[in-house]
């Protein structure tokens, strides 16, 4: 037995639609959670509603996941939980290829700070409005995005060109 909040689907998505009727999104589910997908243009409006509407009250930002979907561009997923209503949801934002801009959530959730910095350095996502988007886990002056699928799995020294082997890509 694992966490089964997906059984609440479409309950949570329907609840979001009821209280935020003006925000366009599509709803489906993952194996564990209800999932709603939204355009970057409506993302901040949706998140504000999710946090501030009393009936939804998603006040706990659990996790931010950046994913490289290759031809479909970068995707960012946010896992949210409500301490009051004890329900969870996942919000997915697709960015178009070559334009990985998403509004930052640091104004809404203090927890978003490090999560966004990590996603930014690992995948090259740009969180507009983040106060301090410098590298967190990697060296400050390294400009690589290791979790992109195009980035090969190899030693850092080879990737940086310190060792002789051809890295197979350019910075």
């Amino acid at each position: 037995m694992t966490n089964e909040t997906a059984s609440a689907y479409p309950g949570v998505s329907a609840l979001v639609h009821k209280h935020l009727p003006k925000v366009p999104f599509t709803a489906d589910k993952t194996l564990t959670d209800a999932n709603i997908t939204v355009e970057p243009a409506h993302f901040l409006e949706l998140m504000q509603g999710l946090k501030e509407r009393r009936e939804l009250a998603f006040d706990y930002l659990r996790n931010v996941v950046g994913i490289d979907m290759q031809d479909e561009g970068l995707v960012c997923k946010y896992q949210l939980h409500s301490m009051k209503h004890r329900h969870s949801i996942q919000v997915t934002v697709h960015t178009p290829p070559g334009n990985p801009h998403i509004p930052s959530l640091t104004g809404l959730y203090a927890a978003a700070d490090w999560h966004e910095r990590e996603a930014a350095e690992m995948l090259g996502l740009v969180f507009d409005g983040h106060p301090n988007l410098k590298n967190l886990l990697l060296d400050e002056d390294v400009r690589i995005h290791p979790l992109l699928k195009a980035h090969p799995l190899q030693k850092m020294e080879i990737a940086q060109g310190i060792e002789d082997r051809d890295p197979g890509f350019k910075f």
Binding site: T2, T30, L31, T32, R62, N63, I67, Q79, Q90
Partner: peptide, 20 residues
């Protein structure tokens, strides 16, 4: 195919694994 976000109570807090 599939995606999930598994959360467990780790020793320090919510130890979650997002998998796709």
């Amino acid at each position: 195919s599939g995606e999930c976000y598994i959360r467990t109570e780790g020793t320090k807090g919510e130890y979650g694994v997002y998998a796709m």
